[in-house]
Amino acid sequence: MMSVRPAVIDVTDLTVAYREQPVLWDIDFTVPSGVLLAIVGPNGAGKTTLIKAILGLVKPAAGNVLIAGKSYREQRRLVGYVPQRGSVDWDFPTSVLDVVMMGRYGALGWIKRPGKAERKLAREALEKVGMHDFAGRQISQLSGGQQQRVFLARALVQDAEIYFMDEPFQGVDATTERAIVALLRDLRERGKTVVVVHHDLSTVIDYFNWVTLLNVRRIAHGPVAEAFTPHNLALAYGGHVAFVPQLSQQGAA
């Protein structure tokens, strides 16, 4: 497309369906390297599914995903992931440091256990999100914001080039929100690409430089100044968008 920098994420014709209901329909987009991209859209728009499909966690009905030109399987070392905080049981018997070290499991490979090097990396990552004092804590003792920062630290130890974060700002305190924003800026300065499922439209312009408006279909995608327009927002959120008529337009476009 028009982007000067090479595309690190290239999605073509991606379609995902649960039973007969399509959750994502014919999604195409490319993400140039080094951008902070927000994926926004109403509930049920398929934002989480889009991330999961890119990461190979959900099997698409059709379409193709390339990460830096190759399949996700080949490139997974380049990718860091922050799932939704609510997707795990925080009463699980484990410590903060243990959870953060899970970010190294992929690099460790099968059977090998985390050791000194992994503990050191985990502590450094906890430091970055302001959680170094909590390393030994049982995870059930954390507040929502602290849980979120532990998940971010776990993604940081993955030492990835491309990060996918699912609703990291959901229900967090102001301290955590500031910590996440600082972290996003830091990642961007280091040339990383970050894709964030986001729900707060009022902060999109402040926090991100690219945006994808999603509502089953791709409504708009590009730099915030171009894509984040009232017209596109109305298309994504306003009224009940009839599905089938839009389909043929999409095909013609």
Binding site: L55, G56, V79, Y81, P83, V88, M102
Partner: peptide, 8 residues
């Protein structure tokens, strides 16, 4: 603990 993260 976190199946999706493991899958990723």
């Amino acid at each position: 603990f976190d199946r999706a993260f493991g899958g990723s």
